[in-house]
Design a binder for these strands. Structure first.
Ligand code: MN
Ligand code: MN
Ligand code: MN
Ligand code: MN
Lengths: 227, 227
DNA sequence: TAAATAAGTTAGGCATGACTAACAAATTAA
DNA sequence: TTAATTTGTTAGTCATGCCTAACTTATTTA
């Protein structure tokens, strides 16, 4: 008898769409997420998202009115959180046990998160002794799908003179993550905003006796807690 | 710059077909493997295999003449061995680190073997200190794709009075593997063939002071080394 | 060797998930 | 409040990988 528990019957694509919607709606706390925004986020055409949203609505994972904003049902959210949990646990495993650096894990985790087996992920969790943060500082949901979603305050949103601590980073860009490590920044680094330049939005920061000037784009990808 | 080394550009299906062909041709050492045989092995229709074989021929992984037997090119073999290596390393990981039993690993490994990342599998190999056998007794190819293919002598092929050692088992059936453990058999068990019954092919065996009668079908799935 | 059977191929169809191009609705700016 | 722009939808196409039904070729067996 095949264990139906492992099969939620969602395709890789359906899972990816639900996860993307969750990250836009809940993790980024957006007021409105529209069809085109989702398309851009997933790097597919609006026609594709329109199509998939139709399908996810018929399966009761998504709710929306024609021309209206997209929303997730509880079931849709639950699937997304499960995916996020898997993604972050795998990233943690790759970093802590398989010598991956933090800029190498995301791509592989994007694949691993679609492996269907409850036992696999719960045992992996146990094997690592239930980690709570992934290599990029993101909170890992527990087996019940519970986790705290920290407000995403970007380094770029701070004023001159502010002092903060690096909490997490946007993990999707390899070159960005390499850059972060290269200049000596890491999770928990204490950063002082020394100067915000009107002209181009670049920011002069100081940390561990290092001074660096970073672009606005860089600072947009660094999430901090003000202290 | 994306690491193209991780992408051999094969779909999951293409990989599965090449692996299946390899297992029929090389591991089972068949004289001839035909289209329908491959279809039956993969549980798809002959039309499907016919189609895929066409595609694999155009990509130079398979060679065959119309109505002729199927063969793999070196490149085709190499892809298949890489897949087998991944499959068996993952099975080993699941058993040795994540509390899976040997009857639970195959299904999940069927998914994990398609994850594309050279680093992942080589690091997993290193993490486990380069295991040479998977939980079912099968030899794990090394990073260069080298491994010894043991001749598959089935328990059912032995004569009365023969004494042998259990080397490996067919891993694809959950109920079979559970049955093996249940009666107390395991890898390395020393088995004596006490009686082969003409009537139904059933075999009376003895091991660790246990006596059992097993069916021909059961004995077909047990691979042994005569001692 | 001719008929029966087995093995392999082809044609046509379906589901999934992409795409482009054309169009419609909603929002924003003039 | 109309026009421009943005956003969303629809229609039609394509690739992949599966299917069934019908057909062709090869192999058996009588
Ligand atoms: Mn990630
Ligand atoms: Mn992450
Ligand atoms: Mn297996
Ligand atoms: Mn195995």
């Amino acid at each position: 008898m095949t264990n139906k528990l492992n099969l939620n019957n969602l395709t890789k694509s359906e899972e990816d769409y639900l996860k993307a919607l969750f990250q836009l709606l809940i993790e980024d706390n957006s007021v409105k997420v529209g069809n085109n925004q989702l398309a851009e986020y997933l790097k597919v055409s609006p026609a594709s998202t329109n199509n998939m949203i139709k399908k996810l609505k018929s399966k009761n994972y998504v709710v929306s009115e024609k021309y209206g904003k997209l929303e997730l049902t509880e079931e849709g959210k639950s699937i997304a959180v499960r995916l996020i949990r898997k993604h972050r646990l795998w990233e943690t495993f790759l970093c802590n046990y398989l010598n991956f650096s933090w800029d190498e894990v995301h791509e592989v985790a994007e694949q691993l998160e679609h492996i269907k087996s409850y036992k696999l992920i719960d045992e992996l969790d146990r094997f690592m002794d239930f980690p709570t943060k992934d290599p990029h500082g993101e909170v890992i949901p527990n087996a019940d799908g519970e986790y705290s979603i920290l407000p995403k305050i970007t380094l770029s949103s701070l004023e001159e003179g502010a002092v903060c601590q690096l909490i997490s980073v946007n993990d999707a860009s390899v070159t960005f993550l390499k850059y972060v490590s290269e200049i000596g920044l890491a999770l928990s680094s204490e950063i002082k905003v020394q100067e915000v330049r009107e002209f181009d939005g670049s920011i002069k920061i100081q940390f561990n006796n290092i001074q660096e000037t970073v672009t606005r784009k860089f600072a947009d990808n660094v999430f901090v807690k003000v202290i």
